[in-house]
Design a protein around this nucleic acid. Structure first.
Length: 533
DNA sequence: CTAGGGTTAG
Protein backbone atom coordinates (compact mmCIF):
# COMPACT_ATOMS: atom_id res chain seq x y z
CA UNK A 1 0.00 0.00 0.00
CA UNK A 2 1.28 3.48 -0.92
CA UNK A 3 1.67 5.81 2.06
CA UNK A 4 -1.19 8.24 1.78
CA UNK A 5 0.72 11.50 2.21
CA UNK A 6 3.11 10.89 -0.66
CA UNK A 7 0.24 9.52 -2.69
CA UNK A 8 -1.65 12.75 -2.06
CA UNK A 9 1.29 14.80 -3.22
CA UNK A 10 1.58 12.58 -6.28
CA UNK A 11 -2.08 13.08 -7.10
CA UNK A 12 -1.79 16.82 -6.63
CA UNK A 13 1.16 16.89 -9.02
CA UNK A 14 -0.87 15.04 -11.65
CA UNK A 15 -3.84 17.30 -11.09
CA UNK A 16 -1.62 20.29 -11.68
CA UNK A 17 -0.93 19.07 -15.19
CA UNK A 18 -4.52 18.12 -15.82
CA UNK A 19 -6.03 20.67 -18.15
CA UNK A 20 -8.39 18.43 -20.04
CA UNK A 21 -11.81 17.46 -18.78
CA UNK A 22 -11.58 13.82 -19.87
CA UNK A 23 -8.30 13.32 -18.08
CA UNK A 24 -9.80 14.86 -14.99
CA UNK A 25 -12.79 12.53 -15.10
CA UNK A 26 -10.55 9.50 -15.56
CA UNK A 27 -8.42 10.51 -12.64
CA UNK A 28 -11.45 11.19 -10.50
CA UNK A 29 -12.81 7.71 -11.31
CA UNK A 30 -9.48 6.14 -10.38
CA UNK A 31 -9.48 7.95 -7.08
CA UNK A 32 -13.00 6.77 -6.27
CA UNK A 33 -12.14 3.20 -7.26
CA UNK A 34 -8.73 2.87 -5.61
CA UNK A 35 -8.20 5.53 -3.07
CA UNK A 36 -10.93 5.13 -0.50
CA UNK A 37 -8.43 5.32 2.30
CA UNK A 38 -7.17 8.73 1.15
CA UNK A 39 -8.35 11.68 3.12
CA UNK A 40 -11.48 12.67 1.27
CA UNK A 41 -11.26 16.39 1.95
CA UNK A 42 -7.62 16.68 0.91
CA UNK A 43 -8.26 15.02 -2.43
CA UNK A 44 -11.40 16.90 -3.11
CA UNK A 45 -9.71 20.17 -2.38
CA UNK A 46 -7.11 19.31 -5.02
CA UNK A 47 -9.90 18.55 -7.42
CA UNK A 48 -11.65 21.80 -6.58
CA UNK A 49 -8.46 23.76 -7.04
CA UNK A 50 -7.68 22.37 -10.41
CA UNK A 51 -10.97 21.46 -11.95
CA UNK A 52 -12.79 23.38 -14.63
CA UNK A 53 -14.98 26.21 -13.40
CA UNK A 54 -18.23 24.53 -14.46
CA UNK A 55 -17.36 21.37 -12.54
CA UNK A 56 -16.43 23.15 -9.36
CA UNK A 57 -19.76 24.13 -7.90
CA UNK A 58 -21.46 20.75 -8.52
CA UNK A 59 -18.47 19.06 -6.94
CA UNK A 60 -18.58 21.37 -3.98
CA UNK A 61 -22.30 20.74 -3.51
CA UNK A 62 -21.52 17.07 -2.86
CA UNK A 63 -20.17 17.99 0.56
CA UNK A 64 -22.90 18.00 3.21
CA UNK A 65 -20.80 19.85 5.78
CA UNK A 66 -17.86 21.60 4.16
CA UNK A 67 -15.24 22.89 6.57
CA UNK A 68 -13.49 26.25 6.46
CA UNK A 69 -10.53 24.74 4.63
CA UNK A 70 -12.71 23.56 1.79
CA UNK A 71 -14.51 26.89 1.66
CA UNK A 72 -11.28 28.81 1.23
CA UNK A 73 -10.13 26.41 -1.47
CA UNK A 74 -13.24 26.86 -3.57
CA UNK A 75 -13.36 30.60 -3.01
CA UNK A 76 -9.72 30.91 -4.07
CA UNK A 77 -10.41 28.80 -7.16
CA UNK A 78 -13.45 30.91 -8.09
CA UNK A 79 -11.46 34.11 -7.65
CA UNK A 80 -8.95 33.06 -10.26
CA UNK A 81 -11.73 32.59 -12.77
CA UNK A 82 -14.07 35.54 -13.36
CA UNK A 83 -16.78 34.09 -11.17
CA UNK A 84 -17.48 36.79 -8.62
CA UNK A 85 -21.12 36.26 -7.76
CA UNK A 86 -20.44 32.64 -6.87
CA UNK A 87 -17.83 33.71 -4.35
CA UNK A 88 -20.25 35.97 -2.51
CA UNK A 89 -22.92 33.27 -2.54
CA UNK A 90 -20.52 30.74 -1.11
CA UNK A 91 -19.44 33.17 1.56
CA UNK A 92 -23.07 33.74 2.56
CA UNK A 93 -23.64 30.01 2.54
CA UNK A 94 -20.71 29.55 4.85
CA UNK A 95 -21.64 32.23 7.36
CA UNK A 96 -25.44 31.87 7.36
CA UNK A 97 -26.12 28.20 6.69
CA UNK A 98 -23.17 26.46 8.16
CA UNK A 99 -22.09 28.95 10.77
CA UNK A 100 -18.46 28.41 9.91
CA UNK A 101 -16.28 31.17 11.23
CA UNK A 102 -14.25 32.73 8.44
CA UNK A 103 -10.49 32.94 8.87
CA UNK A 104 -7.92 35.50 7.74
CA UNK A 105 -7.22 33.58 4.56
CA UNK A 106 -10.84 33.90 3.57
CA UNK A 107 -10.74 37.71 3.83
CA UNK A 108 -7.54 37.98 1.89
CA UNK A 109 -9.03 36.00 -0.93
CA UNK A 110 -12.45 37.55 -0.91
CA UNK A 111 -11.14 41.12 -0.79
CA UNK A 112 -9.40 40.56 -4.10
CA UNK A 113 -12.86 40.92 -5.60
CA UNK A 114 -13.04 44.35 -4.03
CA UNK A 115 -14.63 46.38 -6.82
CA UNK A 116 -17.46 43.86 -7.15
CA UNK A 117 -17.96 43.45 -3.42
CA UNK A 118 -17.78 47.20 -2.83
CA UNK A 119 -20.40 47.84 -5.50
CA UNK A 120 -22.84 45.52 -3.78
CA UNK A 121 -22.09 46.15 -0.14
CA UNK A 122 -20.07 49.34 0.22
CA UNK A 123 -16.50 49.64 1.35
CA UNK A 124 -17.02 50.50 4.99
CA UNK A 125 -19.51 47.71 5.54
CA UNK A 126 -17.03 45.02 4.59
CA UNK A 127 -14.38 46.61 6.77
CA UNK A 128 -16.86 46.77 9.65
CA UNK A 129 -17.61 43.10 9.12
CA UNK A 130 -13.92 42.30 9.37
CA UNK A 131 -13.53 44.39 12.54
CA UNK A 132 -16.60 42.79 14.09
CA UNK A 133 -15.22 39.32 13.51
CA UNK A 134 -11.94 40.35 15.09
CA UNK A 135 -9.63 40.17 12.10
CA UNK A 136 -8.61 43.79 11.86
CA UNK A 137 -5.32 43.11 13.63
CA UNK A 138 -4.00 40.63 11.10
CA UNK A 139 -1.31 42.35 9.00
CA UNK A 140 -2.22 40.49 5.82
CA UNK A 141 -5.89 41.36 6.21
CA UNK A 142 -5.00 44.99 6.92
CA UNK A 143 -2.88 45.17 3.80
CA UNK A 144 -5.72 43.72 1.76
CA UNK A 145 -8.13 46.28 3.19
CA UNK A 146 -5.62 49.00 2.39
CA UNK A 147 -5.34 47.74 -1.18
CA UNK A 148 -9.11 47.56 -1.45
CA UNK A 149 -9.50 51.19 -0.40
CA UNK A 150 -6.73 52.26 -2.75
CA UNK A 151 -8.44 50.54 -5.68
CA UNK A 152 -12.07 51.42 -5.08
CA UNK A 153 -11.80 55.07 -6.00
CA UNK A 154 -12.34 56.75 -2.60
CA UNK A 155 -10.06 59.56 -1.53
CA UNK A 156 -6.58 58.05 -1.25
CA UNK A 157 -6.25 59.61 2.23
CA UNK A 158 -8.61 56.90 3.50
CA UNK A 159 -6.15 54.23 2.39
CA UNK A 160 -3.32 56.23 3.94
CA UNK A 161 -5.22 56.25 7.24
CA UNK A 162 -5.40 52.46 7.19
CA UNK A 163 -1.67 52.40 6.43
CA UNK A 164 -0.82 54.79 9.27
CA UNK A 165 -2.90 52.83 11.77
CA UNK A 166 -1.19 49.54 11.01
CA UNK A 167 0.97 48.31 13.85
CA UNK A 168 3.13 46.11 11.66
CA UNK A 169 3.89 47.17 8.10
CA UNK A 170 5.50 44.67 5.78
CA UNK A 171 7.21 45.55 2.53
CA UNK A 172 3.96 44.46 0.88
CA UNK A 173 2.02 47.12 2.79
CA UNK A 174 4.50 49.78 1.63
CA UNK A 175 4.26 48.57 -1.95
CA UNK A 176 0.46 48.60 -1.80
CA UNK A 177 0.41 52.16 -0.48
CA UNK A 178 2.88 53.36 -3.12
CA UNK A 179 0.89 51.91 -5.99
CA UNK A 180 -2.26 53.32 -4.43
CA UNK A 181 -0.73 56.78 -4.66
CA UNK A 182 0.44 56.36 -8.21
CA UNK A 183 -2.94 55.06 -9.33
CA UNK A 184 -4.46 58.19 -7.76
CA UNK A 185 -1.93 60.20 -9.81
CA UNK A 186 -0.21 61.37 -6.62
CA UNK A 187 3.18 60.22 -7.77
CA UNK A 188 5.11 62.70 -5.63
CA UNK A 189 3.48 61.36 -2.48
CA UNK A 190 4.51 57.92 -3.70
CA UNK A 191 8.12 59.06 -4.10
CA UNK A 192 8.14 60.61 -0.60
CA UNK A 193 6.81 57.39 0.87
CA UNK A 194 9.37 55.38 -1.08
CA UNK A 195 12.19 57.37 0.49
CA UNK A 196 10.70 56.97 3.98
CA UNK A 197 10.80 53.21 3.72
CA UNK A 198 13.60 51.67 5.83
CA UNK A 199 16.33 50.25 3.52
CA UNK A 200 16.36 46.89 5.07
CA UNK A 201 13.74 45.20 3.21
CA UNK A 202 13.30 46.73 -0.21
CA UNK A 203 12.50 43.84 -2.55
CA UNK A 204 11.96 43.67 -6.31
CA UNK A 205 8.19 44.31 -6.41
CA UNK A 206 8.74 47.28 -4.10
CA UNK A 207 11.24 48.81 -6.54
CA UNK A 208 8.96 47.90 -9.43
CA UNK A 209 6.04 49.73 -7.87
CA UNK A 210 7.85 53.06 -7.86
CA UNK A 211 9.34 52.54 -11.33
CA UNK A 212 5.93 51.61 -12.73
CA UNK A 213 4.30 54.51 -10.90
CA UNK A 214 6.72 57.01 -12.41
CA UNK A 215 6.20 55.61 -15.89
CA UNK A 216 2.42 55.69 -15.54
CA UNK A 217 2.56 59.32 -14.47
CA UNK A 218 4.93 60.41 -17.19
CA UNK A 219 8.01 60.85 -14.97
CA UNK A 220 10.21 58.98 -17.39
CA UNK A 221 13.66 60.14 -16.35
CA UNK A 222 12.76 59.59 -12.68
CA UNK A 223 11.69 56.05 -13.57
CA UNK A 224 15.05 55.43 -15.22
CA UNK A 225 16.87 56.93 -12.22
CA UNK A 226 15.01 54.58 -9.87
CA UNK A 227 15.95 51.70 -12.14
CA UNK A 228 19.63 52.68 -11.98
CA UNK A 229 19.37 52.96 -8.20
CA UNK A 230 17.79 49.52 -8.06
CA UNK A 231 20.77 48.06 -9.91
CA UNK A 232 23.20 49.71 -7.48
CA UNK A 233 21.30 49.57 -4.16
CA UNK A 234 19.08 46.58 -4.73
CA UNK A 235 21.66 43.95 -3.77
CA UNK A 236 20.17 40.56 -4.38
CA UNK A 237 16.94 42.13 -5.57
CA UNK A 238 18.07 42.53 -9.13
CA UNK A 239 15.73 43.72 -11.87
CA UNK A 240 13.31 40.98 -12.89
CA UNK A 241 10.77 40.60 -15.69
CA UNK A 242 8.40 43.06 -14.04
CA UNK A 243 11.17 45.64 -13.81
CA UNK A 244 12.32 45.34 -17.39
CA UNK A 245 8.77 45.67 -18.70
CA UNK A 246 8.36 49.01 -16.88
CA UNK A 247 11.78 50.20 -17.92
CA UNK A 248 11.21 49.25 -21.56
CA UNK A 249 8.09 51.35 -21.50
CA UNK A 250 9.96 54.33 -20.03
CA UNK A 251 12.77 53.97 -22.57
CA UNK A 252 10.35 53.64 -25.46
CA UNK A 253 8.47 56.78 -24.40
CA UNK A 254 11.64 58.79 -23.99
CA UNK A 255 13.30 57.50 -27.14
CA UNK A 256 16.32 56.07 -25.33
CA UNK A 257 16.54 53.14 -27.66
CA UNK A 258 20.21 52.27 -27.16
CA UNK A 259 19.43 51.74 -23.50
CA UNK A 260 16.46 49.65 -24.64
CA UNK A 261 18.80 47.38 -26.57
CA UNK A 262 20.90 46.96 -23.43
CA UNK A 263 17.78 45.85 -21.57
CA UNK A 264 17.07 43.31 -24.28
CA UNK A 265 20.59 41.99 -23.73
CA UNK A 266 20.08 42.04 -19.97
CA UNK A 267 17.00 39.83 -20.39
CA UNK A 268 19.05 37.24 -22.27
CA UNK A 269 22.16 37.40 -20.09
CA UNK A 270 20.16 36.92 -16.92
CA UNK A 271 17.93 34.24 -18.29
CA UNK A 272 14.78 36.22 -17.57
CA UNK A 273 11.93 34.51 -19.31
CA UNK A 274 10.64 36.34 -22.35
CA UNK A 275 7.02 36.07 -21.31
CA UNK A 276 4.18 37.81 -23.13
CA UNK A 277 4.67 40.97 -21.06
CA UNK A 278 8.37 41.25 -21.89
CA UNK A 279 7.74 40.40 -25.54
CA UNK A 280 5.07 43.09 -25.83
CA UNK A 281 7.34 45.57 -24.09
CA UNK A 282 10.15 44.84 -26.55
CA UNK A 283 7.83 45.05 -29.55
CA UNK A 284 6.64 48.41 -28.33
CA UNK A 285 10.10 49.76 -27.52
CA UNK A 286 11.63 48.70 -30.85
CA UNK A 287 8.55 49.99 -32.63
CA UNK A 288 9.45 53.53 -31.60
CA UNK A 289 12.59 53.19 -33.71
CA UNK A 290 11.20 51.32 -36.68
CA UNK A 291 8.97 48.36 -37.01
CA UNK A 292 11.41 45.83 -38.44
CA UNK A 293 12.96 44.70 -35.18
CA UNK A 294 9.51 44.57 -33.57
CA UNK A 295 8.40 42.23 -36.29
CA UNK A 296 11.44 40.01 -35.70
CA UNK A 297 10.78 39.84 -31.93
CA UNK A 298 7.14 39.05 -32.67
CA UNK A 299 7.95 36.30 -35.19
CA UNK A 300 10.58 34.69 -32.98
CA UNK A 301 8.50 34.55 -29.83
CA UNK A 302 6.36 31.63 -28.76
CA UNK A 303 4.69 33.74 -26.04
CA UNK A 304 2.43 35.85 -28.21
CA UNK A 305 -0.87 36.98 -26.76
CA UNK A 306 -3.46 39.63 -27.56
CA UNK A 307 -1.27 42.40 -26.13
CA UNK A 308 1.60 41.43 -28.41
CA UNK A 309 -0.69 41.64 -31.44
CA UNK A 310 -1.94 45.00 -30.24
CA UNK A 311 1.61 46.21 -29.71
CA UNK A 312 2.57 45.24 -33.27
CA UNK A 313 -0.50 46.95 -34.73
CA UNK A 314 0.43 50.06 -32.76
CA UNK A 315 3.98 49.97 -34.14
CA UNK A 316 2.71 50.10 -37.71
CA UNK A 317 0.19 52.77 -36.72
CA UNK A 318 2.93 54.92 -35.22
CA UNK A 319 4.82 54.91 -38.50
CA UNK A 320 1.75 55.62 -40.59
CA UNK A 321 2.03 52.19 -42.20
CA UNK A 322 -1.71 51.81 -42.00
CA UNK A 323 -2.14 49.07 -44.58
CA UNK A 324 0.33 46.85 -42.78
CA UNK A 325 -1.43 47.56 -39.46
CA UNK A 326 -4.68 46.42 -41.05
CA UNK A 327 -2.94 43.36 -42.49
CA UNK A 328 -1.72 42.39 -39.00
CA UNK A 329 -5.27 42.82 -37.74
CA UNK A 330 -6.62 40.55 -40.46
CA UNK A 331 -3.98 37.96 -39.73
CA UNK A 332 -5.05 38.13 -36.11
CA UNK A 333 -8.68 37.54 -37.09
CA UNK A 334 -7.66 34.51 -39.16
CA UNK A 335 -6.04 33.12 -36.03
CA UNK A 336 -9.28 33.93 -34.24
CA UNK A 337 -10.20 30.29 -34.43
CA UNK A 338 -7.53 29.78 -31.79
CA UNK A 339 -9.65 31.85 -29.44
CA UNK A 340 -8.08 35.24 -30.10
CA UNK A 341 -10.49 38.16 -30.22
CA UNK A 342 -9.66 41.85 -30.71
CA UNK A 343 -10.35 44.10 -27.74
CA UNK A 344 -10.81 47.83 -27.16
CA UNK A 345 -7.06 48.44 -27.40
CA UNK A 346 -6.83 46.71 -30.77
CA UNK A 347 -9.26 49.24 -32.17
CA UNK A 348 -7.39 52.17 -30.67
CA UNK A 349 -4.38 50.92 -32.63
CA UNK A 350 -6.39 50.55 -35.84
CA UNK A 351 -8.05 53.94 -35.54
CA UNK A 352 -4.69 55.44 -34.85
CA UNK A 353 -3.25 53.74 -37.92
CA UNK A 354 -6.04 55.25 -39.98
CA UNK A 355 -5.36 58.70 -38.50
CA UNK A 356 -1.65 58.57 -39.28
CA UNK A 357 -2.33 57.21 -42.74
CA UNK A 358 -5.24 59.53 -43.54
CA UNK A 359 -7.67 56.65 -44.12
CA UNK A 360 -10.82 58.43 -43.00
CA UNK A 361 -13.41 56.07 -44.41
CA UNK A 362 -11.59 52.97 -43.20
CA UNK A 363 -11.34 54.51 -39.74
CA UNK A 364 -15.07 55.12 -39.61
CA UNK A 365 -15.69 51.54 -40.72
CA UNK A 366 -13.44 50.18 -37.96
CA UNK A 367 -15.35 52.21 -35.40
CA UNK A 368 -18.65 50.72 -36.60
CA UNK A 369 -17.16 47.24 -36.84
CA UNK A 370 -15.96 47.43 -33.26
CA UNK A 371 -19.42 48.17 -31.92
CA UNK A 372 -21.47 46.03 -34.30
CA UNK A 373 -19.33 42.94 -34.89
CA UNK A 374 -17.38 42.72 -31.67
CA UNK A 375 -19.79 44.25 -29.18
CA UNK A 376 -17.16 46.58 -27.76
CA UNK A 377 -18.55 49.71 -26.11
CA UNK A 378 -16.64 52.73 -27.43
CA UNK A 379 -14.48 54.31 -24.75
CA UNK A 380 -13.55 57.95 -24.55
CA UNK A 381 -10.24 57.04 -26.20
CA UNK A 382 -12.06 55.68 -29.24
CA UNK A 383 -14.01 58.90 -29.61
CA UNK A 384 -10.72 60.73 -29.19
CA UNK A 385 -9.20 58.77 -32.07
CA UNK A 386 -12.26 59.37 -34.24
CA UNK A 387 -12.26 63.12 -33.58
CA UNK A 388 -8.53 63.20 -34.25
CA UNK A 389 -8.98 61.23 -37.47
CA UNK A 390 -11.70 63.51 -38.81
CA UNK A 391 -10.12 66.67 -37.50
CA UNK A 392 -6.65 66.09 -38.89
CA UNK A 393 -8.01 65.29 -42.30
CA UNK A 394 -9.84 68.61 -42.33
CA UNK A 395 -13.35 67.28 -41.76
CA UNK A 396 -13.94 69.69 -38.90
CA UNK A 397 -17.74 69.75 -39.19
CA UNK A 398 -17.92 65.99 -38.92
CA UNK A 399 -15.50 65.95 -36.01
CA UNK A 400 -17.63 68.58 -34.28
CA UNK A 401 -20.69 66.48 -35.01
CA UNK A 402 -19.16 63.45 -33.27
CA UNK A 403 -18.28 65.58 -30.23
CA UNK A 404 -21.72 67.12 -29.94
CA UNK A 405 -23.43 63.74 -30.14
CA UNK A 406 -21.33 62.30 -27.34
CA UNK A 407 -23.36 61.61 -24.21
CA UNK A 408 -21.85 58.66 -22.38
CA UNK A 409 -18.91 59.08 -22.10
CA UNK A 410 -19.13 62.86 -22.36
CA UNK A 411 -16.31 64.73 -24.13
CA UNK A 412 -13.33 65.51 -21.93
CA UNK A 413 -10.34 67.82 -22.14
CA UNK A 414 -8.49 65.46 -24.48
CA UNK A 415 -11.37 65.41 -26.97
CA UNK A 416 -11.78 69.18 -27.04
CA UNK A 417 -8.01 69.50 -27.10
CA UNK A 418 -7.66 67.39 -30.22
CA UNK A 419 -10.49 69.30 -31.85
CA UNK A 420 -8.67 72.54 -31.03
CA UNK A 421 -5.47 71.13 -32.46
CA UNK A 422 -7.27 70.27 -35.69
CA UNK A 423 -8.66 73.82 -35.79
CA UNK A 424 -5.13 75.16 -35.47
CA UNK A 425 -3.80 72.99 -38.30
CA UNK A 426 -6.69 73.82 -40.60
CA UNK A 427 -7.00 77.43 -39.44
CA UNK A 428 -10.59 77.27 -38.32
CA UNK A 429 -10.73 80.11 -35.83
CA UNK A 430 -14.53 79.94 -35.55
CA UNK A 431 -14.59 76.39 -34.19
CA UNK A 432 -11.44 77.04 -32.18
CA UNK A 433 -13.28 79.82 -30.29
CA UNK A 434 -15.97 77.32 -29.36
CA UNK A 435 -13.47 74.64 -28.28
CA UNK A 436 -11.48 77.12 -26.19
CA UNK A 437 -14.63 78.22 -24.37
CA UNK A 438 -15.36 74.59 -23.50
CA UNK A 439 -11.78 74.02 -22.41
CA UNK A 440 -11.82 77.12 -20.23
CA UNK A 441 -14.85 75.71 -18.40
CA UNK A 442 -13.15 72.37 -17.91
CA UNK A 443 -9.78 73.57 -16.83
CA UNK A 444 -9.96 77.15 -15.60
CA UNK A 445 -6.59 78.71 -14.99
CA UNK A 446 -5.00 76.92 -17.93
CA UNK A 447 -4.30 79.72 -20.35
CA UNK A 448 -2.47 77.43 -22.74
CA UNK A 449 -5.56 76.82 -24.85
CA UNK A 450 -6.33 80.51 -25.17
CA UNK A 451 -2.72 81.17 -26.10
CA UNK A 452 -3.08 78.61 -28.86
CA UNK A 453 -6.12 80.47 -30.20
CA UNK A 454 -4.27 83.79 -30.08
CA UNK A 455 -1.37 82.23 -31.99
CA UNK A 456 -3.80 80.88 -34.55
CA UNK A 457 -5.20 84.37 -35.16
CA UNK A 458 -1.63 85.60 -35.40
CA UNK A 459 -0.74 83.00 -38.03
CA UNK A 460 -3.82 84.06 -39.98
CA UNK A 461 -2.73 87.70 -39.81
CA UNK A 462 -5.81 88.67 -37.78
CA UNK A 463 -3.97 90.78 -35.26
CA UNK A 464 -7.01 92.51 -33.78
CA UNK A 465 -8.51 89.17 -32.86
CA UNK A 466 -5.19 87.95 -31.51
CA UNK A 467 -4.99 90.99 -29.22
CA UNK A 468 -8.59 90.54 -28.09
CA UNK A 469 -7.86 86.92 -27.02
CA UNK A 470 -4.56 87.94 -25.39
CA UNK A 471 -6.33 90.67 -23.42
CA UNK A 472 -8.96 88.21 -22.21
CA UNK A 473 -6.17 85.93 -21.07
CA UNK A 474 -4.33 88.67 -19.19
CA UNK A 475 -6.44 88.11 -16.10
CA UNK A 476 -5.62 84.47 -15.72
CA UNK A 477 -2.34 82.73 -15.69
CA UNK A 478 -1.37 81.92 -19.24
CA UNK A 479 1.03 79.42 -17.83
CA UNK A 480 1.62 76.44 -20.01
CA UNK A 481 4.33 73.85 -19.45
CA UNK A 482 6.99 74.29 -22.11
CA UNK A 483 6.62 71.68 -24.83
CA UNK A 484 9.67 69.49 -25.17
CA UNK A 485 10.58 66.64 -27.45
CA UNK A 486 13.76 64.77 -28.10
CA UNK A 487 15.22 62.23 -30.44
CA UNK A 488 18.19 59.95 -30.15
CA UNK A 489 20.45 59.75 -33.21
CA UNK A 490 23.52 57.58 -32.90
CA UNK A 491 24.52 57.99 -29.28
CA UNK A 492 23.41 61.61 -29.02
CA UNK A 493 20.10 62.89 -27.67
CA UNK A 494 18.79 66.04 -29.34
CA UNK A 495 16.39 68.11 -27.23
CA UNK A 496 13.87 70.56 -28.60
CA UNK A 497 11.84 73.06 -26.60
CA UNK A 498 9.03 75.26 -27.75
CA UNK A 499 10.33 78.19 -29.91
CA UNK A 500 13.81 76.84 -29.35
CA UNK A 501 16.31 77.82 -32.04
CA UNK A 502 19.47 76.60 -30.39
CA UNK A 503 20.02 73.47 -32.48
CA UNK A 504 22.88 73.85 -35.03
CA UNK A 505 20.54 72.81 -37.86
CA UNK A 506 17.59 74.83 -36.63
CA UNK A 507 16.91 76.52 -40.00
CA UNK A 508 16.54 73.20 -41.79
CA UNK A 509 14.39 71.80 -38.97
CA UNK A 510 11.97 74.73 -39.09
CA UNK A 511 11.83 74.53 -42.87
CA UNK A 512 10.72 70.91 -42.64
CA UNK A 513 8.20 71.81 -39.91
CA UNK A 514 6.64 74.50 -42.10
CA UNK A 515 6.48 72.05 -44.95
CA UNK A 516 4.74 69.48 -42.73
CA UNK A 517 2.24 72.08 -41.54
CA UNK A 518 1.37 72.98 -45.12
CA UNK A 519 1.11 69.32 -45.99
CA UNK A 520 -1.43 68.63 -43.22
CA UNK A 521 -3.62 71.37 -44.53
CA UNK A 522 -3.56 69.93 -48.01
CA UNK A 523 -5.42 66.87 -49.14
CA UNK A 524 -3.50 63.79 -48.16
CA UNK A 525 -3.48 62.54 -51.71
CA UNK A 526 -1.76 65.56 -53.16
CA UNK A 527 1.20 65.37 -50.84
CA UNK A 528 4.27 63.23 -51.29
CA UNK A 529 7.17 62.91 -48.86
CA UNK A 530 9.61 63.68 -51.69
CA UNK A 531 8.57 67.30 -51.46
CA UNK A 532 10.60 67.50 -48.29
CA UNK A 533 13.88 66.82 -50.08
C1' DC B 1 -5.76 27.91 1.42
C1' DT B 2 -3.87 34.37 2.32
C1' DA B 3 -1.53 40.41 0.91
C1' DG B 4 2.33 43.98 -3.34
C1' DG B 5 4.89 45.11 -9.22
C1' DG B 6 4.38 44.63 -15.31
C1' DT B 7 2.76 46.18 -22.00
C1' DT B 8 -0.97 49.31 -25.48
C1' DA B 9 -2.95 56.20 -27.98
C1' DG B 10 -3.21 61.48 -27.62
Amino acid sequence: MIPSCSFNRHVSAILDKCSNLNHLKQLHAHLIRWARHIHFYALSSSLLRHSEPRLRTPLFDKFPTPNIYLYTVIVAACTRAPDHTVVVLIYHDMVRENWSRPNEYMFSIILKLWPEVARDYGVEMVQAHIVKLGFCGYPVVQTTVLDAYARCGVEIGVARKVFDEMLERSVVSWTTMISGYTRARRVWDAILLFEEMPEGIRDAPFWNSIIAGCVQNGLLSEAIEFFKRMVVEGGVNRPNQGTVVCVLSALGHSGMLQFGRCIHGYIYRNGLSLDSFAVSGLIDMYGKLGVLKSRIVFEKSDQINLTSWNALINCYALHGRCHEAVAVFQEMLRRGREGLKPDAITFIGLLNACTHGGLVEEGRRFFEMMVRDFGIEPRIEHYGCLVDLLGRSGKLEEAMDVVSRMREPSPDEVIWGSLLNACRVHRRADLAEFAVRKLAEMSPGNGGYGAMLANLYGEMGKWDEAWRVRAALAGESAYKAAGCSWIEIGSQVHNFYSVDRSHPRTEEIYAVLRCLGDASRMQHTSWRPQQLQ
